[in-house]
Simulated assay, not measured.
Amino acid sequence: MSTLPLFSLAGQVAIVTGAGRGIGRACALMLAEAGADVALAARTQADIDAVAAQIRSMGRKAIAVAGDVNDEATLETLVARTVAELGKLTLLVNNAGGAGPNDPLKMPGAEFAGVLAWNVVPAYTLIQKSVPHMRAAGGGAVVNISSVAARYAQKYFSAYSAAKAALNQMTRNLAQDFGPGVRINAIEPGTIETEALAPYLTPERRQRMLASTPIGRLGQPEDIAAAVLFLCSPAASWITGKVLGVDGGVEAPNFS
Score class of each variant (00 low, 15 high):
251 E>D: 14
5 P>S: 05
183 R>A: 03
158 S>E: 13
108 P>K: 11
107 M>E: 15
239 I>N: 07
205 R>V: 12
240 T>G: 10
40 L>W: 10
99 A>Q: 13
131 V>I: 08
174 L>W: 12
247 D>K: 07
133 H>A: 05
27 C>F: 01
188 E>D: 15
146 S>A: 15
178 F>H: 15
142 V>I: 12
227 A>T: 09
212 S>D: 13
33 E>P: 08
116 L>P: 14
131 V>M: 03
228 V>F: 09
176 Q>V: 15
70 N>Y: 08
166 A>S: 13
198 A>W: 01
26 A>C: 03
210 L>V: 06
250 V>T: 15
160 Y>S: 13
27 C>W: 00
74 T>C: 12
123 A>F: 00
67 G>K: 08
142 V>K: 05
129 K>T: 06
187 I>M: 01
94 N>T: 08
236 A>G: 05
57 S>N: 13
197 L>M: 06
10 A>F: 04
29 L>C: 08
140 G>M: 05
195 E>C: 02
134 M>L: 02
156 Y>S: 13
98 G>D: 04
156 Y>I: 10
208 R>Y: 07
1 M>V: 13
249 G>I: 12
119 N>F: 09
185 N>E: 04
211 A>F: 01
30 M>C: 09
116 L>S: 04
213 T>F: 01
245 G>E: 14
236 A>Q: 09
127 I>N: 03
53 A>H: 10
202 T>H: 00
96 A>D: 12
164 K>S: 11
73 A>L: 14
126 L>W: 03
223 D>P: 11
46 A>G: 03
33 E>K: 07
38 V>Q: 04
3 T>A: 13
9 L>C: 04
130 S>I: 03
186 A>W: 00
58 M>C: 07
221 P>Y: 09
193 E>F: 06
109 G>W: 10
200 Y>C: 06
243 V>P: 14
95 N>T: 06
15 I>H: 03
37 D>R: 01
121 V>D: 08
134 M>W: 00
54 Q>T: 14
145 I>W: 02
14 A>Q: 04
55 I>C: 11
25 R>Y: 00
63 I>N: 06
31 L>W: 00
122 P>S: 02
135 R>D: 06
212 S>G: 11
151 R>W: 12
109 G>L: 15
241 G>L: 06
163 A>Y: 09
70 N>T: 15
253 P>N: 00
185 N>W: 02
227 A>F: 06
107 M>I: 14
136 A>P: 00
170 M>A: 15
219 G>F: 09
222 E>C: 07
40 L>N: 05
47 D>G: 02
180 P>V: 10
